[in-house]
Simulated scan of single mutants.
Amino acid sequence: MTLTSPSAPTAVSSSTADSISIRGAVKIYGSGPSQHVALQNVDVDIKRGQFVSIIGPSGCGKSTLLRLIAGLETADSGTAEVFGVTPERACAAKMIGLVPQAPALLPWKDVLGNVSMPAKVNRRADKLRRRIHGHLERPAPDMLDLLGKAGLTDAVHKLPAQLSGGMQQRTAIVRAFGVQPDVLLMDEPFSALDEFTRESIQEQLLDIWDENKTTVVFVTHSVSEAVRLSDKVLVMSARPGRITASVDITLPRPRSQAMLKTAEFHHFEDVIRDHLQTAWQENPITGSTPIPAGAAQ
């Protein structure tokens, strides 16, 4: 799925053409007693080509942060840039793709038709992307090759109703990579899958990402998934949503299923769990929520 922003694109002057940069982001919903601070003074730097996961308890603002990068939410204060331009402009140029929890495939098109359609309907976006300094031109992908890497060679001409849940999600991933986005946002795309299927798709996702080097921002509740996939894991604390830790995952790539059993892998799992536990203790569910200076009231 590609994202189209409802608002007019606006350029920014920036020296961050090779990163996703968020500075002092605040997002507040509601007012008065029902006011909820979803994000408070969030700073994020994601370098081009990185695979970054965001993890934290339910309601901590993970999806809000993802929507801020996508240009689907506007911060009440602070700034957000995607490779030197606003998220709105990046969306208008189809630089940002999204893989949601539900694959949202067209039921009347087969697998090949579903993954090929976005590139056909978004041809105008190529001209917009070429005007943006932060966009990197790539050769058009071979969709049959991508489907093969995702384990879908035998399903190319099947309709979505003939696919398992895992195969549908693989199709959604190939579709997203097929439009060659500079940034791919993934919002818990494997949450409905069983553990075995989940680990299999993780491996296929890493194979496709390694070849394309698209910048991926991945929201998850799974510690092991975050460790296996990521170059960096951002740990969030709820109420209000903040980045409380950034953990660089220095495990070598490629990361096979066998790596999940190693002491090195478990070390990073323990580090992230410790950060999650500390963040939870520092942010009890009850209690006052400070409103940062300059935020919308």
Rank of each mutant, 00 (worst) to 15 (best):
M1C: 10
M1G: 11
T4D: 09
P6G: 10
A8S: 14
P9E: 08
S13N: 08
S13F: 04
T16C: 10
D18E: 07
S19Q: 15
I20M: 04
V26I: 07
K27D: 01
S31A: 14
P33N: 08
S34Q: 14
Q35G: 06
H36Y: 14
A38K: 06
Q40F: 04
Q40N: 07
Q40E: 08
Q40C: 01
K47V: 06
R48T: 08
Q50F: 03
Q50T: 07
I55E: 06
G56M: 02
S58Y: 00
L65T: 01
R67D: 02
R67W: 01
G71K: 01
T74P: 00
D76E: 00
D76G: 00
S77E: 15
S77L: 12
S77K: 13
A80I: 12
E81G: 00
F83W: 00
P87N: 12
P87W: 08
R89P: 08
R89K: 15
C91E: 12
C91A: 13
I96V: 04
L98S: 10
V99K: 04
A102M: 12
K109F: 12
D110W: 11
V115M: 05
S116V: 05
M117S: 12
P118F: 11
P118R: 10
V121Q: 08
R123M: 08
R124H: 13
A125V: 02
D126T: 11
I132G: 04
H135D: 13
L136W: 10
E137M: 11
P139H: 00
P139C: 02
P139N: 01
M143Q: 14
L144P: 05
A150Y: 06
G151H: 00
L152P: 05
D154L: 09
H157R: 14
L159I: 08
L159W: 10
A161H: 10
Q162A: 15
L163W: 10
G165K: 04
M167E: 09
Q169S: 06
T171P: 12
T171L: 09
A172N: 03
V179K: 13
V183M: 02
V183Y: 04
V183Q: 02
L185F: 07
D187Q: 09
E188A: 05
D194E: 15
D194V: 13
E195Y: 15
F196P: 02
E199R: 15
Q204R: 00
L205F: 15
L206P: 00
W209C: 01
D210S: 15
T215R: 03
V217S: 05
V219D: 03
H221Q: 09
S222E: 03
V223A: 06
A226D: 03
V227G: 03
L229T: 01
S230L: 06
S230M: 05
L234V: 05
L234C: 02
M236Q: 06
R239T: 05
T244R: 12
L251F: 05
R253M: 06
P254V: 13
P254W: 13
L260V: 08
L260T: 13
E264T: 14
H267W: 08
F268W: 15
D274H: 12
H275C: 13
T278D: 06
I285Y: 13
G287H: 01
S288A: 13
I291E: 09
P292Y: 06
